[in-house]
């Protein structure tokens, strides 16, 4: 009971941190000054970073970098070129983007792009390989007509 009472009144603190996180989610491609976010959230920089890390497991800067890489993955999946992805998610140099991407994802952005181009081709050519047979078998007319049509 005492713990519940202790946590709930602090919801206003959570709201400030969550708003800061959402600000990063929306403005990740901009040159975000973390000092400004801390000020907006009415925290000292140190307190802000400590609370942010406690909730999200990453400092605001680490979270920003991970968000940019996640957005980069999404753009690469949509067949955007590596150079365009790099600048549109907020990096200023290809080498720093590629280096961080490889460190987080495990492969280079160009390898990731190629990997997803291949997956898309396979989905287009053989959609049944990506769908459990039980769902396909549920409706044989779909299997015989639509799937073949989709594979054309």
């Amino acid at each position: 009971m005492s713990k519940e009472n202790e946590i709930y009144p602090k919801v206003y603190l959570y709201r400030r941190i969550v708003q800061a996180k959402l600000y990063i989610d929306i403005n990740y491609e901009d040159n975000i000054e973390l000092d400004n976010i801390a000020e907006e959230a009415y925290f000292s920089k140190f307190h802000f970073i400590r609370m942010f890390k406690k909730i999200y497991g990453k400092t605001p800067y680490q979270y920003l970098m991970h968000t940019r890489i996640e957005k980069a993955k999404q753009l690469l999946q949509k067949n955007t070129t590596v150079t365009n992805v790099c600048f549109s998610v907020g990096f200023e140099s290809l080498s720093s983007f590629s280096g961080l991407f490889k460190r987080i994802v495990g492969i280079s952005p160009s390898a990731y792009l190629l990997q997803h181009q291949r997956i898309k081709t396979r989905i287009r050519e053989q959609p049944l390989n990506f769908i459990p047979g039980c769902f396909a078998d549920k409706n044989t007319s779909v299997k015989k007509s639509n799937f073949e049509e989709a594979a054309e």
Binding site: I123, P127, F130, I131, V142, S145, N146, F147, E149, A150
Partner: peptide
């Protein structure tokens, strides 16, 4: 994945 005829997996 498109499955044709408005179907999507």
């Amino acid at each position: 994945a498109p499955m044709g005829e408005g179907m999507r997996w």
